[in-house]
Design a binder for these strands. Structure first.
Lengths: 204, 204, 204, 204
DNA sequence: GATGAATGAGTATTCATTCAT
DNA sequence: CATGAATGAATACTCATTCAT
């Protein structure tokens, strides 16, 4: 479902368009935030990546922070949507977790720049911005919490740390992943597999 | 046992000391690189954190990149040393991996700023600097490769992905860890435990 | 006839005008490059000479080198134009050379700062900038080559060195010229006269 | 004759030594002043060119200006001496001028860095320094004045401009001279030749 | 004779942002 | 919707110079 936000003009009901230039800017910002990090991606870079002058960006976003929030929001939306789509028609808990992990990694490692923006830390943004980002991300994390809760696990297992463990393994992949070898889905299956199946005690 | 470098009293037979101000600068840089990231930690910040003027830093380090390399090198040295110390007198493979993971996390999550610097990406540094960083880190990663290789595992397990999985889970902890709850050692034991013990099939 | 660029009244059909501040900056840069040399003329100086902040200069010129090139280009344009204007309607070769030398010196020694910029060496600029400057100057030097070639000279005379000799004598004048005595035209006539008329053998 | 200036120690009467490190510094300064100009040649450059630290230069010279003066003085001494040596045993006026011009150019264009320093303008040095430089140069210019005065010339010739003309032609050569072609002596002969022999009226 | 360590002002340049047009 | 032109503060870094040791 489109975010809209602004004048969607005379002809509505087009899937997710409406503000063309804004979307182009968002794409460029996502790419540069991913490639260079938030601090090193300047408004000048972003503007010139879409053929605008720096000042013109401010017509669409009132500050760099707001631009980050918009990219982040779109990133959360996309990854959330991808995971929910992947869960459709699946019922077995480990199967669901694997499907979710695969969709998560596909969003993170694909040519999609938005996903990578969501999992970065932003140590320099003001507190209110950070709070916004956390709020945006919260719903998505809840989704995963539910998947973990649904797993049949020995009572000794701390599901909180299990979720953080899984998120860590998944979210760390962008630091080493290079296209060409195993794809996101295979990697996700490996990672969930390590958790699912016993590693110790069966060196047969 | 540490190679000196720490204050073992006034002038006790230390081989490489004396360069007091340099070390203070290094500490400040490590802290600010961790707190704000490389790009957002300015030379001005770093200098004023130790009561110097910005230009004075350049007497000790000829560029910001060189300062990063020096912090990084010290960070690798410390975490490597901590892990090696932890392995002393341990022989059982899973035990060794757990001890290594615990030492790794203790360095990463303790009040030590150097550790966190080592696991960050530096997307904006020039290629030759990045190459230097990778070289510095290489020896340390090899150490972990050895620990993983020594595990008795089912032949189906890909040890490459297992290492990356473990590193991800461990290195992601700084994004969520807050002192006060479980300590680094307990968290490391949880994470290695997830890999070691079967999660599926025994919900008893 | 000049190609516009000069103030011919308020908005008289000029093709490339309007960029008022840029021209003011160019003037200030030319003056400071002349007065203090390229290295010692700082962007701060130049900016404050026109009442701008240093950063604002970069809206008009993307670097100090580019500013130098722009001044240089304008300088070549002016001196070239002045010499070509002076040659109009002259046909006798020595007469033409004298007129050209006079126009050259008038540009160099007048209140025009651009001329002086053209004849300076720039030992610290990067090679690609130096190449640009040489290219800009080339057309002008060719003009003088033609004037020298047209002279009726004894076959023993090396026209290459004659041109360099003349350029040297002319371009050296800014090091000693002070307004108040003989003007540029008289000096040019003297210099060309020394070459034209026999000095030896007629001490009558 | 050596300049001495400082403690010439226990064993005097060695030709021009005494302060070894000072001379080495002077050489390096001369080279860098010539290669990069006064402003762009930093004390750091000069110091590191002789393997010193910047502060150490100040043991020998109390300021950059003083270093310039010392180089300049040595430059004047050398070119003056070279020209005087070249005049020995010559009596014919044009012959003497030619010999002087040749010696002048040999000093300017040879591997001697001092000569080039003497003919540069130093627009940024304080007035008292400039006055010192002019004073140093004066004696040398007087020498040339004498040579010009001795020429048998038509009364119409202004010897003042003739000297400036000749100096210009000679001093401009460093801007275009490249080793490999005609040497300094041949170039000097050409230049003086242009002044001496009629160029007009004998195109036979 | 020289170094180690710094200073304070300066270098060119880039930053996010503003605002009249 | 966007530009042209700027601001003011920051960026990494270099400058000539000082001075205790």
């Amino acid at each position: 479902m489109a975010i809209a936000q602004a004048h969607n003009g005379p002809d509505a009901n087009m899937p997710q368009r409406a503000d063309n230039r804004r979307d182009v800017l968002l794409d460029a910002a996502a790419r540069l935030f991913r490639e260079r990090g938030y601090d090193a991606a300047s408004m000048r870079h972003i503007a010139s990546a879409v053929g605008m002058l720096p000042g013109s960006v401010y017509y669409h976003f009132s500050s760099k922070d707001e631009l980050l929030c918009a990219v982040y929001e779109e990133g959360v939306r996309r990854i959330h949507e991808a995971v929910e789509d992947a869960l459709t028609d699946r019922t077995e808990p480990w199967d669901r977790l694997t499907a979710a992990a695969a969709a998560h990694l596909e969003t993170l490692l694909g040519d999609n720049d938005y996903g990578a923006v969501v999992i970065r830390p932003y140590p320099t943004v003001p507190d209110d911005v950070r709070d916004q980002l956390i709020t945006l991300r919260d719903g998505y994390e809840t989704l995963f919490r539910g998947l973990i809760d649904a797993l049949p696990l020995p009572p000794s297992v701390d599901r909180h740390y299990l979720r953080l463990h899984l998120f860590g393994a998944l979210n760390w992949t962008p630091t080493w992943y290079r296209p060409g070898g195993d794809g996101p889905r295979a990697i996700a299956e490996q990672i969930v597999g390590h958790l699912r199946h016993p590693l110790e005690g069966d060196p047969s």
